[in-house]
């Protein structure tokens, strides 16, 4: 029994670790250091990818093909060329065009709520599942056990195999 509980704990821990790894992954690689040369299309797109076109509905800036977006990408190129960091470019975009240009909502202030609720839901969900299962077990324990599983080795005897076969056929 305790062994089972232990394994269950391990399972939950594994699930929890998923979130931790996700968080590690979430840390983006350091922005490319600004150089004096003209930034390449790829360097521009790397920043543009994190921004949304301020005027088109739900379109990331790196894939948007309107004239306005081309102007903005040119602007990013100019800014990177004059030594701005990625952070500075993004801050500039937020001041100029509002928070909606950020593909990923900020993790501070009001918008941090968007990140917190899912975590809360998962936590509550796990607690809820735990409570439900516990109450089901309690109602089970109030009755006598019907049958415990028989434990056979890997070498399954012929007659048992036949029985499995017969039952599989019966049900389907």
């Amino acid at each position: 029994m305790t062994k089972n509980k232990f394994l269950l704990l391990v399972l939950f821990a594994a699930l929890a670790s998923l979130f931790i790894t996700a968080k590690v992954y979430a840390q983006d690689p350091a922005p490319t250091p600004a150089s004096a040369t003209v930034p390449s299309d790829n360097e521009v797109n790397l920043v543009a990818k994190k921004l949304y076109c301020p005027v088109c509905p739900n379109t990331p800036l790196d894939v948007c093909e309107t004239q306005a977006c081309k102007d903005w990408r040119a602007q990013i190129r100019d800014q990177l060329a004059s030594g701005w960091t990625e952070k500075e470019v993004m801050d500039y975009f937020v001041t100029q065009y509002g928070e909606r240009v950020l593909a990923e909502p900020e993790r501070g202030g009001f918008t941090s709520l968007v990140w917190m609720l899912p975590l809360l839901i998962v936590a509550l969900g796990l607690v809820f599942v735990g409570l439900v299962l516990k109450s089901w077990r309690a109602s089970r324990l109030s009755r006598p056990l019907v049958q415990t599983e028989s434990q056979t080795g890997t070498g399954i005897p012929k007659q048992i195999l036949d029985k499995i076969e017969a039952e599989i056929r019966k049900v389907d």
Binding site: Y52, N58, G98, E99, R100, L102, A103, E104, P105, W115
Partner: peptide, 11 residues
Amino acid sequence: TNTKITVGPPY
């Protein structure tokens, strides 16, 4: 907050 924001794919 009267601010328009985007919740994009990263979220």
